[in-house]
Each structure stands twice: as C-alpha cells, then as structure tokens.
C-alpha cells in the first residue's frame, strides 16, 4: 500500500485529534471538554505507536529467553515510542483526574458544569470586584469639593 492511504493510521490520528480539539473549543459542558481533551491526547498516542511500526516487524520481545528455541533475526518494531507512550498515558490519566476533581468542585460551588453559565457568574463577580476596588481617579476624587473656589 502506498500513497496517502498507505499511512491511514496517521489520518486516523489527525481526525481523532481534530475531533478532540473541536470538542475542547466548542463544547460548553465541562465534562465533554474533559472527554474531548482525552480524545485529543489519545490521537497523539496513536501517532507515536504508528511511528514505531516497521514493515514486517514484530513485537520487540526477546523470544530466546521465553522458549529457549532459535532466535528471531527479523526486524522488530521500535520499542522506544511504546515506552514513551506508556508514560504519556499515565500523564494523560492524571490530567483527566485533576480535571474531574476540579469539575466536581465547580459543580459544588457554582451548581452547574455549563461553561457559559459559569462564565456569566464569573463576569458578574469580576464586575462587582472591580467596582468595589475602584478608586475614582485620585485627581477627580476631591474635585467637587474644590469647585467654586478653585478659580479665585
């Protein structure tokens, strides 16, 4: 198999990643965002695994040790990306765990997991915070007190 179709697994990884990215950007539901993030990262895992494959290669297992029979001399798939991706999977799971923990806390304090509703509440908080902290410009503050006898 040659051409663009010959590397179909790379296409799959791109499609998965884009679905994930779309979800992260477009979905207002926080849980859906977390799922999309997972999908996005899974795409990358597939890419790494695909990268390791060698035409006609087999699993990089040291068969002599297993059965004492003759040694397989053919090509092995590159084991390094597999190892890397094992680590990356752990990382991704942890990210998901932290994200879910945050979402649970958000549900408790805001009462919703819809991003736009939360954003509206946050904006209201922020506005109130801004107004409370605002000093009328130092110079304008006492302006009215001076009016009248400012210009002698």
């Amino acid at each position: 198999m040659t051409g663009a179709l010959g590397i179909y697994n790379y296409w799959i990884y791109v499609v998965l990643m884009m679905i994930g990215l779309y979800g992260v950007i477009a979905k207002p539901n926080l849980i859906k965002q977390a799922i999309a993030l997972g999908l996005f990262q899974t795409g990358i895992f597939l890419y790494y695994i695909s990268m390791a494959v060698i035409d006609g290669g087999t699993a990089p297992v040291w068969t002599t040790i297993l059965d004492g029979a003759q040694k397989y001399e053919g090509p092995y798939d590159n084991p390094l990306p597999h190892v890397l991706i094992l680590t990356a999977i752990v990382v991704s799971v942890s990210v998901l765990a932290v994200a879910l923990a945050l979402i649970i806390n958000i549900k408790r304090t805001y009462g919703t997991i819809e991003y736009d509703e939360i954003e509206a509440m946050d904006q209201a908080d922020k506005r109130a915070d801004y107004q409370r902290g605002q000093v009328t410009d130092a110079a304008d503050d006492v302006e009215h007190k001076l009016e009248g006898h400012h210009h002698a």
Binding site: A138, A139, D140, D141, V142, E143, L146, H150
Partner: peptide, 10 residues
C-alpha cells in the same frame, strides 16, 4: 496631596 497637587505631580 490635594487633587490639584496629585494631578500636577503626574
């Protein structure tokens, strides 16, 4: 520290 002073100092 008056309004005018602060504005001029600016």
């Amino acid at each position: 520290g008056s309004a005018e002073a602060i504005r001029s100092a600016r």
